[in-house]
Design a protein around this nucleic acid. Structure first.
Lengths: 362, 362
DNA sequence: CAAATTCAGTCAATCGTTTGACTAAATTGA
DNA sequence: TCAATTTAGTCAAACGATTGACTGAATTTG
């Protein structure tokens, strides 16, 4: 039950293999009569002929396969979108994706590079599941693109597609600033990932621009970025700084914890305290009540852009590809932000129960 | 900067290509002197020789590549684990994964089959992101395995790895039954997926075994399975059936909504009402307070098992592979279940506030 | 010492596709 | 009518790896 080859089609039509190849790849310019051409095409169809890409690539000395190295990317909710986008984009350019998961260390990545080399991939994409630093080996294949990660050791060497942490987070901070909040807290990861750096800077700058009070003292660092951490940080924050009217969270799971703490303290969201998250994990941001205002990171676009850049450099269409592309996040406005409670409570979107809670607290 | 070939190694060592091939693939039994063997190996290493799998596969007339067709699998939180497991398992058997995303219709899948055929994959895995029915074209490649999906039109034709819906859900229902609950409600998807079918059956059987009251009337069907739906269903349920002491949810997002509704109604979890979910979406189940008791579906194991079966049938090691393998979920006990309020409140893990709420209600 | 065996390798065909070089017949042009 | 051109194809080498068949020399055996 082996697959039909050019030779099979040739035999069925009574012509040479060459002619079949020429006809089926549309290069038969003036070398074939219309009648024979039709016969060949019919035979190919009847036999279910499909070109053997192995043979073709061997002859052509290049494949249309891209390597996709995923740094634990696949086991997180965000991850899939990048992968999905990468695959679809590759497919739309007639490329395939060889998928390999690696650990974030030079040895594991080097091994994967070797594998991909054996498969003669023409380019490689490395993607991480959160904006982090990737540990590359000394020697890397040509045509390498980084998505959602950076390589400090090779700064500027590879095209790199990352989220615009600063300006994306700034969007939600601006929302708090414009609403009139002056007492804003930040709950953030204590580990110095690129994402943490960018978002912290945004917070500090926003504080300056909007005249936020004692902003530096209102940065709460957590060892983990899950709901539990957010819960505890928020309890601590509201205990130490009861005048806080808005909390910016490094990500949505933290914001989930913030919700829990505020509800336990009977502090209304957003009537008494506004909350913003980051990531737009639909499961959380869309599931919380009230809906969480957050920023959606463009994982889909990152995947697409990364593969498009990769294909461009593989085909050498673009001599000077831009080295670092920052992709903007998108503010997703739901119902967790209102004006601060002391400036114009009447103007807020607070519910009756939230207002009564506010009274109880005072 | 092309890659070194056997010919390059041969030239560097002054021997024939054949000998290099023999030596490097370890088949040089008595055909090579130790000295020459060492020289060849050194040259190969120095040149960074890597076998060209295209050429090898062409000659051998078979690849070590598997096709992974993913039905929108990549964009969901669960998905990654199956994919990750599939890749790692394949890798551990020296197979690679060609990853393609498809839509769940015969045309899209047929197209992908064609692509995979061109790449001469030796086997194909189809995976869905939730236990659903897959629409296959009339002709399918040999060596096809289904993971987390079934094909009713081809029942028993392909090895199929699916979660054991009935017995997995039964684990958490049993927990409710043993705790002594008699008034249990179910919130479930209205669409008749295999997952819905199995879990509904488990609920009905559990109701019979444990003597649950009016179980059939306490099945609430939702158009969506998100937190919002769970919230509304729970409000309705508690309004109509205030004596309910336990709610089983079809999945964790629904349970998240159940939490919100119960908290709004000032009904303590688990003091007054116990809740169980399904899926163990860590983001939700681990993030909720109290932690949600739920069932973890073995996506990782499914991926591994599916690829192992696939490789087995590709290599024809197993003549009679089991046709449907049901993989057991694992009960993840957190803090959302206790004994029912009316039988022995003192025995429950209820908090003071929950108990006081209970008093308020009565 | 001759024959048989072992050792240490080489040769050459093959997998399926591509493509520049070639050819034989038909057609055109002068 | 004969050379030149066009048409309609075929030939054969190549891509890189594999492997059964082969070979010439060295060693063992009787």
């Amino acid at each position: 039950m082996k697959h039909a080859t050019l030779a099979d089609v040739a035999k069925a039509t009574g012509v040479s293999v060459s002619l079949v190849s020429l006809v089926l790849s549309g290069k038969a310019a003036k070398r074939c009569s219309p009648a024979v051409e039709a016969k060949i095409k019919k035979a190919a169809k009847d036999l279910g002929y499909r070109a053997n890409r192995l043979a073709r690539s061997l002859k052509e000395q290049q494949t249309r396969t891209l390597g996709m190295l995923s740094i634990e990317v696949a086991t997180t909710p965000y991850a899939g979108q990048l992968l999905s986008a990468a695959q679809k984009t590759a497919r739309s350019h007639d490329y395939e994706l060889l998928f390999v998961e690696v650990e974030n260390n030079a040895k594991s990545i080097e091994e994967a590079f070797g594998l991909l080399a054996e498969h003669q991939v023409v380019g490689t994409l490395i993607a991480a599941y959160f904006h982090s630093e990737v540990k590359l080996p000394k020697t890397t294949p040509k045509n390498l693109v980084l998505a959602n990660c950076i390589s400090n050791a090779n700064k500027g060497k590879y095209p790199t597609i990352i989220p615009a942490e600063y300006s994306s987070f700034m969007q939600s901070l601006k929302l708090l600033g414009i609403a009139g909040h002056k007492n804003v807290g930040l709950i953030i990861d204590e580990v110095e990932w690129p994402a943490v750096e960018g978002r912290t800077k945004a917070f500090i700058d926003a504080a300056q621009n909007f005249g936020w009070i004692r902003a530096n003292e209102r940065i709460y660092k957590c060892a983990n970025t899950n709901a539990e951490s957010g819960y505890r940080a928020t309890l601590e924050m509201m205990l130490r700084d009861p005048e806080i009217t808005a909390i910016a969270c490094y990500n949505d799971p933290l914001a989930m914890g913030t919700y829990q703490a505020l509800k336990e303290l009977k502090i209304g969201i957003p009537a008494q305290v506004s909350v913003v998250g980051f990531d737009d994990l639909e499961l959380i941001s869309g599931g919380l009540r009230p809906g969480l205002t957050t920023v959606r990171l463009p994982h889909y676009q990152m995947g697409r852009e990364a593969v498009e850049q990769l294909i461009r450099i593989c085909e050498e269409k673009d001599e000077i590809p831009m080295n670092v592309v920052e992709i903007q996040g998108e503010l997703v406005v739901r119902d967790s932000v209102s004006v601060p409670r002391n400036t114009s409570a009447s103007n807020s979107s607070s519910t009756d129960s939230a207002l009564s809670n506010q009274e109880e607290e005072k």
